[in-house]
Amino acid sequence: MLSIDDRVDPSQVTPSGRPRARALGIPLDGRPGPHNAITDVPGVQVGYTTLIEGAGPLVTGQGPVRTGVTAILPRGRDGVGRACAAGWFSLNGNGEMTGTAWIEETGALAMPVVITNTHAVGPAHRGVVDWVVAHHPQAARQWLLPVVGETWDGYLNDINGSHVRPEHAVAALDSAASGPVDEGSVGGGTGMNCYDFKGGSGTASRVVDYGSRSYTVAAFVQANFGSRRELVVAGVPVGRALLDDNPMEANASWPAPSGAGSVIVVIATDAPLLPGQCKALARRVPIGLGRTGTSGSHFSGDLFLAFSTANDAALSSTFPRGAATDEDYESLTFVPWGRIDPFFEATVQSVEEAVLNALVANETMTGRDDHRSPALPHTRLRDLLATGRQELTAP
């Protein structure tokens, strides 16, 4: 496999050598950052724990195992406890994202963000607490409300088998790093499906010029949503031409309706934004998802978080002592609302590409009970895109 070095463009190839959407020549709007990843936002780090074990019939508690944990550190491992402006949005609430009540109350995020499978939220949450206690005991002197999001990987994984444990969340946090980010069947995305193809983890970024400065807006997705017929790539409805080889749809014993699943999206930026503006970015995530074709199934949990790493520590809460003084104020610099549209556009573009990267940077996976999730066929996709919209949309 290829490795990322001076000869390889990380916007087109993952660290493990898998092609990304741009490597297939998919036309995409906007200018990506150097790694085309959420880690293009200075300070943001991403880590994974990937659990793959066993094959054949499901034996609850034994496997097969196809799951994991993804960790995102907004200010890196040394910045835990220093709050970022943050906001969140639920397109459809058939899912879970912990810590959001406190984000709604304060407009701030000071803890790590972890993504895993639906039935592993508890152990992952415990793992984050254990990690913070060990590495940031000062922050652990008050209550800890980390963000843990989930999507359901039960088609491929022994989801009821308690295979994700607190130490796996700890390991993901310990491995978090800046630079290129692997995609596909890694971390919490290991056992996920997207548009009835193999889905999982994906990321992308966009650069926004603002006066003499440049800022980055970036997305990380755990993609586990959509039905095959909905899939759209670069405006071309390719899904309707790829309806064959769909084991999930063909499995008469499988209870989940087409389109069921979930998607967790994390938006990061170094642009100075208010909490309400972060929430506004999170509300634009569905537009990026919609560009890939989804109509947002009732059976899909679609939960989105956005944060800004600017205004370092201005939002961090401290326990007050004594009476307030004339110096007890904080100041926030922020992009005026009238200038925010380019950041909305960058959000939409990065979400769309992150989903496509999760699909493209993947391979076919077989899991529990020999359930198979096929990879998006690259050659057929290129041919369909070359054919163009007119032929595919003809009656």
Rank of each mutant, 00 (worst) to 15 (best):
A71G: 01
I72F: 02
P74M: 06
P74S: 06
P74A: 05
R75Y: 05
G76E: 07
R77H: 08
D78N: 09
D78C: 02
D78H: 08
G79N: 08
G79D: 08
G79H: 08
G79V: 07
V80C: 10
V80S: 09
V80D: 10
G81S: 11
G81H: 12
G81A: 11
G81Y: 12
R82Y: 15
A83G: 13
A83W: 14
A83T: 13
A83V: 14
C84E: 10
C84G: 09
C84A: 10
A85R: 15
A85L: 14
A86T: 10
G87E: 11
W88K: 05
W88H: 15
F89Y: 15
L91H: 07
L91F: 12
N92L: 01
N92Y: 00
N92R: 02
N92C: 02
N92E: 01
G93S: 05
G93K: 00
G93P: 01
E96A: 01
E96N: 04
E96L: 04
M97S: 04
T98Y: 04
T98A: 03
T98H: 03
T98L: 04
G99F: 05
T100E: 06
T100D: 04
A101T: 12
A101K: 14
A101G: 07
I103Q: 07
I103G: 06
I103E: 07
I103P: 08
E104G: 14
E104R: 15
E104Y: 08
E105D: 13
E105I: 06
E105K: 15
T106P: 07
T106I: 08
T106C: 08
G107R: 12
G107M: 11
A108N: 11
A108K: 10
A108M: 12
L109Y: 09
L109W: 10
L109I: 10
A110G: 13
A110R: 13
A110H: 09
M111G: 06
P112Y: 04
P112N: 05
